[in-house]
Simulated scan of single mutants.
Amino acid sequence: MPEDAPERVEGHTTRRVLVTGAASGLGAALTAAFRARGDEVLATDVVSTPLDHRDGPVEHREHDVLRLDVTSDDDWAAALATVEERWGGLDILVNNAGVAGGGRIDVAGLDEWEWITGINLFGVVRGCRTFVPMLKRQRSGQIVNVASLAGLVHPAGMASYNAVKAGVVALTETLGHELAPYDVGASVVCPSYFRTNLMDSLRGADEALGGVVTALVETSPFTADEIAAAVLAGLDAGEEVILPDPAARAAWELKQTDRAAYVDQMRRQAARLDQLA
Rank of each mutant, 00 (worst) to 15 (best):
E3A: 15
H12E: 11
H12M: 14
A163K: 04
D236R: 08
D183H: 15
V65T: 07
L243N: 12
A33D: 10
F131Q: 11
V188S: 02
W115H: 08
A36K: 14
V146H: 08
D258C: 07
A5Q: 12
A29G: 11
G123F: 05
E85F: 13
P244D: 11
E112S: 04
T14A: 15
T172D: 01
A248S: 10
T71C: 02
L198R: 06
G98Y: 06
G11K: 08
G56T: 12
P191I: 07
T257W: 08
D111T: 01
D264N: 15
G210E: 08
G102W: 01
R54T: 13
S72R: 01
R16A: 13
C128S: 00
G141V: 10
A159Q: 02
L198Q: 09
V164L: 00
L152H: 02
S160N: 08
N95Q: 01
A79F: 07
T49I: 15
F222A: 12
K255S: 15
I119A: 00
T13P: 10
E218N: 07
V124N: 08
P133V: 09
M158L: 03
R86W: 09
P181D: 00
R104H: 01
M266Q: 11
V46D: 11
G38D: 04
A166S: 09
P133T: 10
V41M: 02
R15I: 02
D52Y: 01
G88H: 03
R268W: 08
S220Q: 05
R259G: 14
V146E: 04
W113G: 04
A237K: 04
S201Q: 03
Q269H: 07
L254M: 07
R8S: 15
E226S: 03
A33C: 08
I116M: 09
V263Y: 13
